[in-house]
Simulated assay, not measured.
Amino acid sequence: MKFGVVVFPGSNCDRDVHDALVHDLKQECIMLWHKNEDLSQFTLDDCIVLPGGFSYGDYLRTGAIARFSPIMKSVVEFAKRGGKVLGICNGFQILCEAHLLPGALLRNEEQKFICRNIFIKDADGDVLKIPIAHGEGRYYANEETVNELEENGRVLLHYCDENGNITPEANHNGSVRNIAGICNKERNVFGMMPHPERACSAALGNTDGRKLFNKLFLTANIATASTVHN
């Protein structure tokens, strides 16, 4: 499987994603400048990654300008044809702005930037420790949309405590129903606020990010799960 990591002006996690994929997960990875519209080297079995950071300085609102970068037209077309797309943190915000995923990411409930290790529960019921680093990570969608996400197994990640309990106290940014990551109806576009690329190296003391990447793309995975385990 081949990955393409998009570099926007203001991206600051693009190299982190590249290094995690290449050095820790041993995958082929190509850096893509945001003005490059050509994705012809990627097949529908490959994945385009929109990394975290502050694309275009978060002007207007997070992800709003990056959504109109030249490459995004190609990313949207790639996704609509069935290609895999992953948005991490700012990338998740961009996917929502591009209407590839429903909802929006709002300012954290306590109006503060959060940077810490937290726990998330995936659709298999496994608990993973993954870092977060965001100021606008509070996932919001109307009740009808959230019900549809949960009923159809499209919530891939919930914020939880270390024992897997999905509680208000474990909901660090105030996201609706503790949602930390979702996918589209076709299950080929994924968005999450946590940063798995920062938890892929034993040198960093945490390799739970490898488990998440593997489940999403490289093994039998949570992306095909039809139910969410609470």
Rank of each mutant, 00 (worst) to 15 (best):
V17A: 06
E37V: 05
L86V: 11
A64T: 08
G91I: 02
I88R: 03
E151I: 01
F54A: 00
V17D: 05
A104I: 11
P102F: 00
E110V: 08
N108F: 09
N36A: 13
G87P: 03
S69P: 06
D24Y: 08
D38E: 06
E109W: 06
L32N: 06
R61T: 12
D122A: 06
K35L: 11
N142F: 00
G137K: 01
N147S: 11
E148L: 01
P131K: 08
I132G: 01
A66N: 07
V76N: 12
A141W: 00
C47Q: 05
Q27P: 11
C47L: 05
W33C: 12
E136C: 10
K26Y: 15
G53I: 07
F68N: 02
H23I: 14
D46Q: 11
G10F: 08
I130S: 07
S69W: 02
G103A: 03
P131Q: 09
S40G: 05
P131R: 05
Y59V: 13
F78G: 09
D45F: 00
Y56Q: 01
C47E: 06
D58R: 06
V127C: 13
Y59I: 12
E28P: 14
S69C: 00
F54W: 04
I118G: 09
L95D: 03
F113C: 11
I94P: 02
L39R: 05
Q111S: 15
V7F: 14
C115R: 12
D19F: 07
L21S: 07
E28Q: 13
N117K: 09
K129T: 06
T43Q: 00
I88G: 07
K112Y: 13
A20P: 07
K80R: 13
Y139V: 03
K129E: 07
Y59L: 11
Q111T: 13
L100W: 02
E77I: 09
G87E: 03
K80T: 10
P51Q: 08
C96T: 04
R61K: 15
M72V: 10
K73T: 15
R81L: 14
L25G: 10
K80L: 11
G83T: 05
D24I: 10
D46Y: 10
E37L: 14
R107K: 15
A98E: 05
P70M: 04
G135P: 09
L39Y: 11
S11F: 04
G52Y: 02
E28Y: 14
D58V: 07
F119P: 04
L50S: 08
D45H: 11
D122R: 03
D46C: 06
I48P: 02
D58P: 10
H134C: 02
L32R: 05
K80Y: 13
A98Y: 01
I71D: 03
E136W: 14
R15K: 07
V49E: 06
N142A: 01
Q41W: 05
I71W: 02
A104V: 11
